[in-house]
Design a binder for these strands. Structure first.
Lengths: 329, 329
DNA sequence: CTGAAAGCGCTTACAG
DNA sequence: CTGAAAGCGCTTACAG
């Protein structure tokens, strides 16, 4: 392979110093360095005849400027051959926003395995983390140095440090939901899983309790593990209104509802506090799928972080949809 | 923002030279530098307490090693929010292969607009180009320096230089197709567009002519521009067997076929010499959609290029599928 | 108007 | 066993 053409190759071919060549080629001629028109032309000609391409990494090393690269990482695979991936829309949103703002994207494929992972993330000016974190050791060491990091979804790994994340506007959405249910019910069952510790659900739960309290509605808390007991089912059905924390929890109840001949809008009302990304739970969907927007926002948030903003959270409002499980209330 | 922790910060905290710190931290202690166990521990402790993260760009600048980044670029938007994009599967294949081989991916979003585009591509060790090229000035200057570049699809922009590309195995596939058609027909109409200069089709045409010659089959060449004349239609139908260069050409004929009451397998047989990526032309589809495999191969090809291979082409075989338009022959 | 020099953060012969 | 020094390709005060 031919050695790459460097600035000093261009300079010596043009018979000028590297300083002059640099000034001309980086378009900065005129700042602290001025170059005569004749010389500038010579440099330009030398560069193009040699096919000079600047080494962006070296430029960045020297200047320390934002290199206009956003890293995206996750432990999951965002590009399965089936494009209906859980994370695809987040990614698409990030990509669109990055493109709009003139940023490139570095996909960190090997974050999971590689030991030198934290150093690879530093090739970018900042990073966006999608999905569940299995291990935060490297993340924490990046955060220690205020490395610009934005999480998609609520995170609490700060160890006291601020954590930048973008989330759906669950607080407002839960409030609207409770408002709707309160038209007919004064008790709401809340079924959550003791297992799903991956994504913190305490805040969703808190929003729900607060919204119910404001309207003097009783919350019947039903924590379940991996299966539903008859008494769980009875509590839910007798309340008439139910909020499930996650879709997989709803799925545990569905056969029971069928067995008892009740279905969304007939004998049971409510919603699930999770965005319906696979689009398979239409009757229970509570709000629009705005994953694309959340992805975009994460990129916008990171970019404004890079230009000095210290804002910690970004929120994407999630408008309530009418579905079978809330219709007619 | 805190200044990033550098190697020399670690060294001075540990009370050793940067050389020693480097040797320990890069795991190279033992090569030309040996470090006592006690000192190595001191360095390790200093690094972790400071949260040291090496600057991968600086490392790469110094060593010149493969930095394990593959750039992917295109003039199109490869990530529309509708994931059924023309390029999605290529990209998914690249990503999977890169992940398998321990490479990260740099998506060059702004290749189209930015002036400094060629320099951004150099942030990666090599690059894969997907889609149509509108302008090759920058590409040529990269090729001049033997920058590792692989095209997905046939390209001829070498200016005499070797062009690395991966393609579907059209030669073999066309031969199989002709073999099937030859069971009943001794003439085949070949309809190509004089407009579609974007992707070179001369080789497909050559494969077809060669395959027909081997079997003493006559090729009736029908070049069309953007519409079909009655005589074009008559030629095709009287031949009974037809090969369309592209799907959009087939689409021009479909209403005519319907008008005359003939349809694939009844009155007309044949195929289209384009892979059916949108999956919307089932009756005429000639072979499996192997875009994922072609994407993978492009990455594999680039990676072996990076480790010294000089192979120019890579080919993904495309097994023939039976469809309405060839059934019963 | 132009060039020599320092330095970005790292690694690696080389000399102690 | 350890460190001083050169250098990767660039930019930018600074001095002519």
């Amino acid at each position: 392979m031919n050695r790459r053409v460097t600035l000093s190759d261009v300079a010596s071919k043009a018979g000028v110093s590297v300083a002059t060549a640099s000034a001309v080629l980086s378009g900065k001629a005129g700042q602290s360095i001025r170059v005569s028109d004749s010389r500038r032309r010579v440099v330009l000609r030398a560069a193009s005849s040699l096919g000079y391409v600047p080494n962006a990494a070296a430029q960045h090393l020297k200047t320390g400027d934002d290199n206009h690269i956003i890293a995206v990482f996750t432990y999951e695979n965002i590009f399965p051959s089936d494009p209906r991936s859980e994370y695809y829309l987040f990614f698409a949103g990030i990509q669109q926003e990055a493109e709009r703002e003139g940023y490139d994207i570095l996909i960190l494929n090997n974050w999971g395995q590689d030991k030198s992972r934290s150093s690879r993330i530093r090739l970018a000016s900042g990073a966006i983390m999608i999905g569940v974190m299995r291990d935060d050791e490297h993340i924490v060491s990046l955060m220690k140095q205020d490395y610009p990091l934005v999480f998609v979804g609520r995170r609490e790994i700060g160890h006291g440090r601020p954590v930048h994340c973008v989330t759906f506007g669950y607080e407002e959405a839960v409030d609207s939901l409770v408002e709707i249910l309160s038209r007919r019910f004064d008790r709401i069952a809340y079924v959550s899983s003791s297992l799903s510790a991956a994504e913190p659900s305490e805040d969703k739960s808190a929003y729900l309790h607060a919204a119910c309290k404001r309207r003097s509605i009783t919350v019947v808390d039903i924590p379940i593990s991996d299966s539903v007991t008859p008494s769980d089912a009875t509590s839910v059905i007798s309340a008439g209104a139910v909020i499930f924390d996650r879709f997989f929890i709803l799925d545990l109840f569905t056969p029971i509802f069928q067995e008892r001949g009740i279905y969304p809008g007939h004998g049971i009302f409510g919603a699930v506090l999770e965005d319906d990304w696979p689009g398979t739970h239409g009757e229970w969907t509570a709000w629009e799928n705005r994953r694309l927007e959340l992805g975009s926002l994460s990129a916008r948030h990171l970019i404004s972080f890079l230009s000095g903003s210290r804002e910690e959270q970004g929120i994407v409002p999630i408008p309530i949809l009418e579905s079978e499980s809330t219709r007619g209330l």
